[in-house]
């Protein structure tokens, strides 16, 4: 299998000594990778470096074979992402925000934009200003934006934040459908371990800025009764 995401010796240290240290990780094309870890483990830090929002102190990230540090435009050409909160321009409507994003992608016409808004369930609000959106609607908007480019890789940091139960189920189904239909690669961090178990094909646990374990969900569930037990066991041995 070809690699979609390669993280090599990634180190990013903050003044408070937290961060990510010598992270090495590979995600193959078409995988749904679940990035687990307690608060402050460094998940968002790693994802920020992966999307170019932050710069690494050392190491690099390769998306579809292109370096995020040296070849940012090519690396992110087929990337969609949601990092922490979704912050579209509040004074613009949902469709205006989508059109701004679409200017960077060939073939992202109005039909495609409406399709993305429809997939995430906010098409009926397309002419409303985003400042009036709830947290869940903004999250759906963020996913719609991430889908505009017909992404081959989607990096989603806590994508279920703010979503209602119905929204969570829809999001889970959407992720699985995109993987099955287009072979989209996902890199997802979530605190909702049950959802990770239901969605992800591979799981990695980050603890204290270091990757302590990676395995396929299938293998994990052969050894443990649930992903939660695996997580607690791995984190517990490292405390």
């Amino acid at each position: 299998m070809e690699n979609a995401i390669v993280i090599k010796n990634l180190t990013k240290k903050y003044k408070n000594d937290r961060g990510v240290f010598d992270l090495n990780l590979t995600v193959e094309k078409g995988e749904i990778f679940g990035f687990l870890g307690p608060n402050g483990a460094g998940k968002t830090t790693a994802m920020k470096v992966m999307t170019g929002l932050s710069h690494a102190d050392n190491g690099d990230v390769f998306l579809n074979g292109f370096s995020v540090r040296d070849d940012y435009e090519k690396a992110t050409e087929k990337l969609g992402s949601i990092i922490e909160t979704v912050t579209p321009y509040g004074y613009l409507t949902a469709m205006e925000n989508m059109k701004m994003y679409a200017r960077f992608y060939e073939g992202a016409d109005e039909k495609r934009l409406e399709e993305c808004l429809n997939l995430t369930g906010i098409l009926k609000f397309k002419d409303e200003k985003v400042k009036n959106f709830s947290l869940g609607m903004k999250q759906r908007m963020g996913l719609a934006l991430a889908l505009v480019s017909n992404p081959e890789i989607l990096i989603l940091d806590e994508p279920l934040n703010g979503l209602d139960v119905e929204g969570m189920v829809e999001m889970r189904n959407l992720i699985v459908n995109l993987k099955n239909a287009y072979g989209t690669t996902f890199f997802i961090s979530s605190h909702l371990i049950h959802d990770v178990e239901l969605t992800c094909t591979k799981v990695g646990i980050l603890y204290g800025g270091k990757l302590i374990s990676t395995d396929t969900t299938e293998n994990i569930l052969k050894k443990y009764s649930s992903l939660e037990n695996y997580y607690l066991s791995e984190v517990g041995t490292n405390e």
């Binding site: 170019g52 940012y72 579209p88």
Partner: peptide
């Protein structure tokens, strides 16, 4: 300060 810069920085455009 509004964090909307994230919208622009996550597009495939160099800084």
């Amino acid at each position: 300060s509004a964090n909307t810069i994230k919208f622009t920085l996550t597009t495939p455009v160099s800084r």
